[in-house]
Design a binder for these strands. Structure first.
Lengths: 227, 227, 227, 227
DNA sequence: CATGAATGAGCGTTCATTCAT
DNA sequence: GATGAATGAACGCTCATTCAT
């Protein structure tokens, strides 16, 4: 292949370019994975770029070839996590053939919980509130939780329309429910990370059971049925 | 008082010493206030000693005249807040002359909520979780929340013994309830800080109403009374 | 005593002034003592003004009422020590009634050694060379040692004139002898500070014996008498 | 070499890597040199990292790329110097074919003195005692001098066994001799640094002569041969 | 005279980011 | 594209000295 011209549309370079692109994507992914591991162990602020490139076994400069800053990388991680979790929520169907709303709700809760636990590295950072991040990342996370809360509000409103949900302040209840969910998730993540050795977190290792208990608590509270 | 001896017990020097002490206490308080403002805006880690002394309009060295370290100052803030809040919780009396448990519970919740909102600056930092602090401060805060959760666990157990509380996983429920409470407090703090201008936080400005709603939700959940 | 005039020459104020002066001198002495103790424990640079005023139980500002700086105080200590030690050296008499030169020399060495050990606090700092001090104090100490060395040079020269001392490079020998003396003093100070517990410094606790050994070594070296 | 594979063992990259390594080593060396100059002028404690990076014309961060701390750098300097000097001491042979002990001794002294003067910068710091360093560096230096003194003690003991050395307190004599040696070295370093201009240090510029004089003094002292 | 609160330059060290190779 | 040496602002903290009371 002598005298290669500078452009080579559709030729061998296409293959080369494609391979390069693939390699680039793989490298990028590897850095993201390394960063996840580091963030899980140290949290956002404590994690240094040094830690990440050490883990990824790349040079300092290489990091900035793939991400414009530490914050940029974190943003990517957050976005990926949020879209994954968001994808687990199914709209509740009210048709005659559909499962009862409560069953659908339970499945939603279970799926979300499972999904969060699967992405434990990044979840550990996001699900614990805190002012740990840069403003931009913060806004991203806040936006997510706002949308989840809106989902809850809608569900409650619909439920009230159907007579399934009693009277309550939708704003307050949705905030409290979300906060409770987050707390439970934090404990489940801790229990998962602690492995078999943590007696304290025993309750929180039974994913489905916790999810159900959670939902039960949201629906009926703790008071004994009156009468 | 002629022939004034060289010592002056209870005389002018006392006044001078007392004034000095007062000034010192005031200065200390001023630094604490400045730090509160900075911590509220930036969180613990983001806040630098530089920020605090800038806000307090003092020299670098002066800071270390009153506090041995940034962590020391923060610890003081935390301790003060925690003891204030802890002081609001009354043991629930079960005697025949006592108010009904639910009323006592409601008053506890209201008092705690009110107290937290009164210490909005430091509450903003503590009530939002996060890996933001030094290990020592962290332990302080964690210990507090652990004790609050234990309080909840005890209350639920007693309630179950009395038949007031239905069957549930005490661990899970206490974690979720505490998380929900914290979330509600965060929103109330936000609403309080935003002033009149925030339409979104409207619900969260009615302290007593939110407290009651919270308790109601914990006791009965959102499901409409069946039957 | 109404309408006291501002001047009171030779009157009651004289007594008062004298008393004041005495108090001032005492205070000054107390600070010097405190500083000695601190310098002995920490050396010049490691010792902070904080340490000194703590030890002297005076206020920060008071320190600067008596000494213009830490260096100033140190200079005073050095001067006092140097004049004490210098005072122990007697000119060697060569008259027919005088003790033999070697005896006079031995007494000089013994007196100097004893005197240094008596002022262990300040001696510990000065006798160990090192760039520990400010330029000014340094010059003071250097000047002292220079004058001691000159003394040695003179003695050697005179000794050579009398046929008591053999041929040698006076400069080199005086420097080496002074260095050896200092080293021995350092070890004696250490031994004295270590108390009874230090087996290593045992040899160095017998003041007169060490002084004699020292002189012997200077005069005859270690080589066995030839022949 | 057509179809160059992606790896390049032993090829151009090797050269690049080698050059990089060399540059790195040079830079490191440059910093060490700069630090030596600063330490020589100011001693360890007075020398700040600021002084060193100023002298080396590098940025603050660069310093910590090559050394983990100021103490680390100093330790390196000390270790290098000590091993150099230690290497100059040859065990004294007593076999029939060996040079007379005194000649071997003289050569040892000459070599040590020459070596110290060749490393004048760092020698200036180490050879002058002083409480100037960190504990760790201090221990390093102390250990060295302790081992040198042990060497002297051994030599004296052996010499006594052979009847070459007369009776004396080995501890005292070895301490005094080492101190004398150090003092002479300090003066020789000063003389060397002062250049041609210093009339006072003239005697100390003749390295071999001073070394011989030193040994002579240690062996025979200053007293004229009796008889 | 005595006080001690206040000062601010200085310390050693870290770390996200840049850029010549 | 990949590298890693270089950067320098920023960090928390110390301490000799000043000065209003």
């Amino acid at each position: 292949m002598p005298f290669v011209s500078e452009e080579d549309p559709g030729g061998a370079l296409d293959g080369r370019a494609a391979r390069a692109e693939r390699r680039r994507a793989e490298r990028r992914e590897a850095i993201l994975e390394a960063a996840k591991a580091v963030f899980r162990d140290k949290g956002y602020h404590q994690a240094s770029v040094h830690d990440i490139i050490d883990q990824a076994r790349i040079a300092r400069g290489t990091f900035y070839l793939y991400f414009s800053s530490k914050q940029d990388l974190f943003g990517e991680l957050v976005a990926e996590f949020l879209s994954q979790v968001r994808g687990q929520v199914r709209r509740i169907e009210l048709g005659p053939d559909a499962d009862p709303p409560r069953t659908q709700l339970r499945n939603n809760v279970r799926r979300v919980v499972t999904s969060v636990l699967e992405h434990d590295a990044i979840a550990s950072i996001i699900v614990r509130d805190g002012r740990g991040y840069d403003d931009e990342s913060r806004a991203q996370v806040d936006g997510f939780f706002a949308s989840v809360q809106q989902l809850m509000r809608d569900a409650i409103n619909v439920g009230q329309g159907l007579g399934l949900v009693g009277p309550c302040d939708v704003n307050v209840v949705s905030v409290v429910a979300l906060g409770g969910l987050r707390s439970a998730l934090v404990r489940m993540l801790d229990a998962q990370a602690a492995g078999a050795s943590d007696p304290d977190g025993e309750s929180f290792k039974q994913t489905a059971a916790v999810a159900d208990e959670l939902l039960d608590f949201f629906l009926r509270g703790v008071a004994a049925p009156s009468g």
